[in-house]
Design a protein around this nucleic acid. Sequence first.
RNA 1: GCGCCCAUAGCUCAGCUGGAUAGAGCGACGGACUACGAAUCCGUAGGUCAGAGGUUCGAAUCCUCUUGGGCGCGCCA
Length: 564
Amino acid sequence: MTQLARLKAQVTDDLRESLRRTGEAGEVPSVEGPEVVWEYPSEPGFGDLATPVAFALARSARRRPRDIAEMLRRHLDLDPQFVDRVEVGGAGYLNLFLTKAFWQQVIPGILTGGEEYGRSRVGAGKRAQVEFVSANPTGPLHVGHGRGAAVGDAVANLLAAAGFAVEREFYVNDAGTQIEMLARSVLARYRQGFKMNAPLPEQGYHGEYVRDVAAALQAEVGEKFLDLPEQESLPAIGEFATRLMLEEIKGDLERFGIHFDSWVSEKALLSRWGPPDRDRLVAAVRDLFGPNVYEEEGAIWLRTSAFGDDKDRVLIRANGEPTYFISDCVYHREKCERGFDRLINVWGADHHGYIPRVKAALEALGYASEPLHVVLVQMVTVLRGGMPIPMSKRSGEFVTLAEVMDEVGTDAARFIFLTRRSDSPLDFDLEVAKAQSMENPVYYVQYAHARLSSVLREAEKAGVPGPYLEAPLALLDQPEEISLLKHLALYPEMVEAAAVTYEPHRMPAYLQNLAGELHGYYNKYRIIGADRPLSQARLALVSATRTVLANALTLLGVKAPERM
RNA sequence: GCGCCCAUAGCUCAGCUGGAUAGAGCGACGGACUACGAAUCCGUAGGUCAGAGGUUCGAAUCCUCUUGGGCGCGCCA
């Protein structure tokens, strides 16, 4: 628990006590523990902490909020070491002005906490799984996957910082017709490699990478698949191509700085259901869902409408083939069985219509749907100098994640993917992303970190080395210093809020504010000077700021460079 | 037709469980390096929070409608 959290809890208690006393004094009718919410006013005149609790009481007490706030204020008994004074502001706000000593105290917490500063225990003892990317292994990752990867990884990092035991999972859609289509496409290119007339299938994959896979296939098996009947060659080619694509995907992700704890194969999952003959499938499905399964017009349906979905969904088609939905059911059942307290799915926003049916499936399986939360990630439009680059999956023309990493680097890409809320569409301009200028927020933040690293190196040279635990912090009394301290003090709450709402985009916003505070401060004041105690105090502040910058950047998967 | 999401400064976007005078960045204009990193800073300009009702002491935030956008609605994956 941070100093700030402790103070808020303490003042909340005092406030309740004050309420009780005002009630006893007959000044207002006693009210059962009202919600005490705390705000951080941006206006200095409104103090450091403010609560509108008097407004909530005004109605039942039939008194003006200002009067109630005034009574509460008189009955408050707060520690003068931390709370300088309390004022009634506006129409009835209770404004707390904290002492400089209080804010100065955040520094020791940060310096001793180090990498741990900002971690909390809200998720302690709980397990969370974050499933993300989960791209079909039918082609390379594109920018959209990159955004999903950045978001999923950041959400996982945030949950871990909030105390959850986190597992990152990639669900490999290696079963079904899309793999078969990939195999047919590779086979066509493979045959073309032998000067045969073999057109790509109608719905085939047109990307250049298919030729690469075909060439690799030829290098491995030579002419072997030319004579083989397709029933034999296609499964083998499918496996070969899937393996190759997965390797490429893994390589891209590794380069993007993302590591998965588990890779779950849809094919392997389904194969546990035995051979795909209809009777056994139906039996398995009935066994799984019980009475919520019924047969109509030759198909097997799940009664998802009984659990909040618009309509029922087909599990097994009339032709005996299982649907994609059945895979989802089986997969999510397995997730539940693994005993996670939270299941986070990061999906493309075009899949939002699937949320009700998957939740319904969980309910039908006898699990609660609440632990499942879907983070939707909207489309990325790639621009170059303001002009959109056309992308089409069908023609195989799309900007790959690898290309983005080549051109703008991983740090800029990851940071930009996280600057907007994930469910709003993102314009990603390559020229802006690689510009090392103020247009590019990632450098603004990284520069702050590099700059402070440099200052700390200078301090060492000047004979004022760290870790500044004994620094006379009372000397930090300039308004910019107090403001910076407040930002640092708020960091743990930021992380916790971003984690529980699954909204990583709050972190870049926080970072830009913090970096802004720092740059302003740096330009106005000299850190290392003739006054040694003052230098030490400022270096303590600088060191603490650097730690928070580094911790926050790490959560986003962005490097915190010592030099740039 | 039904459902979900969105509309905030010229541009790109924040705005936490409703709170005080709605904020950044970019772009524009004007300034600041003989001291720790000018990839920086300081200042100026810029708003009917799409529109109309409603709830509330109080609404960018919640509800309804309208307009204008995005997406989803298959025994496809």
